[in-house]
Each structure stands twice: as structure tokens, then as C-alpha cells.
């Protein structure tokens, strides 16, 4: 199971991916670590609940983050395409608020391929396009002691099967760790939590 996660999770470079659900911001924040180039985060200019760099600092380095505030969905997509194509950044995160058409999704995919850059589109539920390489639905989970549990459902995968994982954040190693499923969990691990 974890082998599959290792294939999917550091998102495939040069492709555009999608994430939805309430934990999508966290998912994007953990993805910022995988490149030594800066990350580019595009959001609507009227958005109220903005990113908090103090919170981001736990997952990635906010000093290596560039923000763009665009007025409309078309601007967001245009900026995302430009950033993906340039290859000057390692990850482009775009927050959209309207459904993404197949044309727009495909354009982003081509731009990501041209720039060898990873794209991640944060969509509202069910507004993604069919052109995405993978789509992740991210939900925070309540845990007994662990307050970093997330359930990541891989709900679309162009090059593999669908799967879901429960992950937690390891603050010392600063990386995502998959929590073993209940049936496979060794006894010792369940005793300590």
C-alpha cells in the first residue's frame, strides 16, 4: 500500500493535478517542499480567508512563496499557465472558484509539460476538469491523540488505480507519513498510538 503512495504522492512533475475538500490547503502546503525552486500561489483577489504564513511555516518555507492575486478566474488561469510554462518556479498552486472546462484543464496540462513544472489546482468540490493527472480529495480527520491526521482520497488517477490513505504530519522530519491501515497495523504501534 505504501509503495503505491510513494508512486503517487510527491506529485508527478510536469503534470497538472487537482485537490479539493477542506484539507486542500494543507495538501498544497506539503507539496511546496518537493522542489528547491520557489512556489507560486495564485488566489482570487477578493478572497477573504487568506493564507497565514505563520501557519504555513510549519509545513514549508513561506519566504520561498510568491503570491499572485488575480481578479477573475480567467486571470487566475492565465497567470497559472504563464508560471507553469516559464519553468522558473517549482510548483504552481492555483485556487479557482468556478468549474474548470476541459479546454482550460488541457491548456494547463500542456503548459506544465512545457515548463517541467508541477501544477496543483485547488478546486471547489466537483469543479475539476477531466484533464487532470490526479485528483485528491482531502479531509481532516479527528484522531485520538494525533491532531495532524488527514484522509487523502485519490479520486482520479490517469496512470493507476484509485486508493485512499490516512496520513499524518511528522513535524521533526517535516514530511507526510502514511498511517498503516487497521488490519495491517502491528500490535506495538497500536499500543503506543
Amino acid at each position: 500500500m505504501s509503495a503505491d503512495f510513494a508512486v503517487c504522492y510527491p506529485l508527478k512533475r510536469g503534470r497538472a493535478h487537482e485537490a479539493c475538500g477542506p484539507g486542500a490547503t494543507y495538501f498544497a502546503a506539503t507539496c511546496c517542499n518537493f522542489s528547491d525552486k520557489p512556489a507560486f500561489w495564485i488566489s482570487p483577489s477578493w478572497q477573504q480567508g487568506g493564507l497565514n504564513p505563520e501557519g504555513l511555516a510549519a509545513y514549508c518555507d513561506p519566504t520561498r512563496l510568491l503570491l499572485a492575486r488575480a481578479a477573475s478566474q480567467i486571470d487566475i488561469l492565465a497567470v497559472a499557465e504563464e508560471a507553469l510554462r516559464s519553468g522558473a518556479v517549482g510548483l504552481v498552486v492555483a485556487e479557482i472558484y468556478e468549474p474548470l472546462s476541459l479546454t482550460h484543464g488541457r491548456r494547463l496540462q500542456l503548459a506544465a509539460e512545457a515548463g517541467r513544472t508541477t501544477g496543483l489546482i485547488l478546486t471547489p468540490d466537483g469543479m475539476g476538469s477531466n484533464a487532470a493527472e490526479t485528483r485528491w480529495c482531502c479531509m481532516p480527520l479527528s484522531g485520538d491523540r494525533d491532531s495532524t491526521l488527514h484522509r487523502w482520497d485519490l479520486i482520479k488517477n490517469k496512470s493507476g488505480t484509485l486508493e485512499n490513505w490516512v496520513t499524518r504530519w511528522d513535524a521533526t522530519a517535516r514530511r507526510v507519513i502514511v498511517v498503516s491501515k487497521a488490519g495491517e497495523r502491528p500490535r506495538a504501534a497500536s499500543a503506543t498510538g
Partner: peptide, 18 residues
């Protein structure tokens, strides 16, 4: 210019709204 480093003091939320 980018700040040289970001001080990590206390757990803070990822998103902050009014």
C-alpha cells in the same frame, strides 16, 4: 527582497479569516 528566514513560534492556523 525575500526575508532570510521565518521564525516559527507557536502553532498558528493555515488560513486566517475575519
Amino acid at each position: 527582497d525575500p526575508a532570510p528566514s521565518w521564525p516559527l513560534l507557536r502553532p498558528r492556523p493555515l488560513r486566517l479569516f475575519p
